[in-house]
């Protein structure tokens, strides 16, 4: 066990993040032992199994993982968007208040000006039967009590802010009249309309052309810097995450398996899963032989294997990994890894 390990309550399976900035100011968001499961015909299925992290105001964190890792469910839980048969346990403290278990009316006070979200599918996220202008002004009028004229002016300003050309003329256009990139910009305008202190972006560029992706990413980063809002960027693409976030939490099978500074992790991963993820990305490969898909598939959520959840796919798994589940432990002041062999992985990267 690492001497750096900071664990006041050694409950198995719970994450405790050593946050460099945690000393002093209270965090904007503190997630503790977040667990989300869904009742299905085959019993309860866990999507998130004990996730803990904190986020300071203005900080940008990428949550990285494959499909089914629980990253999107985590994002939705932060907004209270998990409905029955889903169940949320643990604590989500936003500005010091635990929002888990709040009713819709109370959650609605946080949604918008507190936490806001941009979803993956921009076409699906906008109501097809209302013009984009009416969707923005509706929000401003209902939530901020602006009158029609002021709301309209503010809507145009928002559309300009997210880089929609000829904003004034486009107010009356419908979502299907926008291109994919412009539509996602419109979704971002809606998400930042109430000036949120935390923006969650759930794979906002996955459905877009590569040429458009860069523009959206630049916009997100620029907005985050200008408005000083915190950002949680959910993605499966580490290269994309690097463009917008300074920190990363890698998720696997409903848990955080590695956390740290994003450039650090990009250079020297401390978990075999992160390493495999990097090796499977086309941008880091110089030739086809460098490109390695991760063998096997993520575990079925209904039946998590004993020991380390990643061991069936892990190239360096030992007997210990098949029986004893590793804790998320600190390797240095700003690096956490959930691997028995984290030091080896870290050293091997050099």
């Amino acid at each position: 066990m690492s001497p750096l390990r900071d664990r006041s309550q050694p409950a198995p399976g719970s994450d405790r993040v050593v946050d460099a900035a945690a000393s002093g100011t209270a965090p904007l968001l503190a997630v503790r032992d977040l667990a989300v499961d869904f009742a299905t015909d085959r019993g309860r299925v866990s999507a998130v199994r004990g996730v803990s992290f904190t986020l300071q105001a203005g900080q940008s964190l990428a949550i990285l993982g494959e499909s089914g890792s629980g990253k999107s469910v985590t994002g939705k839980a932060l907004l209270g968007l998990i409905d029955p048969p889903g169940r949320v346990r643990g604590a989500i403290e936003f500005e010091g208040e635990n929002i888990v278990g709040w009713d819709e009316a109370r959650l609605n006070t946080v949604r918008g000006p507190g936490v806001s979200m941009v979803f993956q599918d921009s076409f699906d996220s906008l109501n097809p039967v209302y013009s984009v202008g009416s969707q923005v002004t509706e929000l401003l009028r209902v939530r901020q009590g602006l009158d029609r004229r002021v709301a309209r002016e503010r809507a145009v300003a928002l559309m300009r802010q997210v880089g929609i050309p000829a904003a004034e003329e486009r107010l009356k256009d419908y979502p299907h009249q926008f291109s994919g990139g412009m539509r996602q910009r419109m979704c971002i305008a809606l998400a930042i309309a109430l000036r949120p202190r935390l923006l969650i972006a759930d794979e906002p560029t996955t459905a877009l052309d590569v040429t458009v992706q860069a523009g959206i990413l630049r916009l997100v980063r620029q907005l985050q810097r200008e408005t000083r809002m915190a950002l949680i960027f959910v993605t499966h693409d580490l290269a994309v995450a690097r463009l917008v976030a300074s920190e990363v939490a890698v998720m696997y099978a409903g848990r955080i398996v590695e956390r740290g500074g994003i450039d650090d992790i990009y250079r020297r991963p401390a978990h075999p899963y992160t390493r495999a993820l990097l090796a499977s990305q086309p941008d880091t490969a110089r030739s086809w032989s460098d490109l390695r898909p991760i063998a096997g598939s993520p575990p079925d959520k209904a039946g998590i294997v004993p020991g380390c959840a990643f061991h069936p796919r892990c190239p360096i798994a030992t007997d210990r990994c098949t029986t004893e589940e590793p804790d998320l432990r600190a390797l240095s002041a700003d690096r956490l890894s959930r691997c028995h062999h984290a030091e080896e992985v870290l050293d091997a990267a050099h």
Binding site: L79, L81, E104, A105, L107, N108, T109, V110, R111, G112, P113, S116, M117, F119, D121, D124, S125, L126, N127, P128, E138, L139, V142, R143, C187, L190, A191, A193, L194
Partner: peptide, 20 residues
């Protein structure tokens, strides 16, 4: 649908989601 979910994520009231 996604648009109702995203409208909900912006904090619009349930009745507005249903009827509008």
């Amino acid at each position: 649908s996604g648009y109702v979910q995203s409208a909900r994520a912006r904090g619009l009231a349930h009745r507005r989601l249903v009827y509008r």
